[in-house]
């Protein structure tokens, strides 16, 4: 564990708390992609199957349980109490391609052909693309509530800090995982346009609005 990874994980945890705060305070899930949230639940469940086989630390176990359960709770919120505030027409990304594409990539690139390892690889490639339905929705709407942009910023910052963590781990431990590094770089790159608008508008107190 290093400081970059710790802060990254805390940003990830913080992003989820911001999303829950948005839902609780506005009693609405408007602007949030159900598909992206569902993809994250699949990502966490397929990645953390090793909860039962491989103990890392109490911190690691706690975070895994938090990510799985909060993702499940967010889906419940969007489907049950906040159902009427969800706009399905804005959430129009063809996510079948992401689910299938990650499957193909996992079968090609997995380190080992065991069930747990292949599902781990699947989760990495699925997470790489899971934000796309949310970004498409943002693009279609052209604007977003400020709290939603803070959520997305925290999520993007978590990914960017993981890259710093990998550089640090390479320098100090000679640890490299090609799959997570490549997928992580692609995933972070997807946030570039969003970061630009966030830094130039939201942080200056203006509304998030696409040019």
């Amino acid at each position: 564990m290093n400081i970059f990874r710790l802060v990254a994980d805390l940003m990830h945890l913080g992003s989820i708390l911001i999303l829950l705060l948005k839902m609780f305070t506005s009693r609405s899930c408007a602007g949030i992609s159900f598909k992206t949230q569902a993809l994250y639940l699949i990502v966490f469940v397929t990645r953390y199957l090793d909860l039962f086989t491989h103990f890392v630390s109490v911190y690691n176990t706690f975070m895994k349980i938090f990510f799985i359960s909060s993702a499940g709770y967010i889906l419940y919120m969007m489907r049950v109490p906040l159902k009427d505030t969800y706009n399905k027409h804005l959430d129009a990304f063809r996510w079948e391609f992401l689910l299938g594409g990650a499957g193909v990539l996992a079968l090609v690139f997995t380190h080992k052909y065991t069930v747990i390892e292949t599902l781990w690889t699947y989760s990495i490639f699925l997470e790489m693309m899971a934000i796309l339905p949310q970004l498409l929705q943002l693009q279609r709407t052209g604007e977003a509530e400020t709290i939603t942009t803070h959520y997305l910023f925290a999520l993007g910052a978590y990914r960017a800090l993981y890259i710093v963590n990998w550089i640090y781990r390479y320098e100090t431990e000679h640890h490299v995982d090609a799959i997570s590094t490549m997928a992580g770089i692609v995933q972070t790159a997807l946030y570039c346009d969003f970061f630009y608008v966030y830094f130039t508008r939201v942080l200056k107190g203006k509304r998030f609005k696409l040019p």
Binding site: V56, I116, N165, H175, V176
Partner: peptide
């Protein structure tokens, strides 16, 4: 340590 079952990142 590279790959395999020992994934220690979240």
């Amino acid at each position: 340590q590279d790959g395999g079952d020992g994934h220690d990142e979240l």
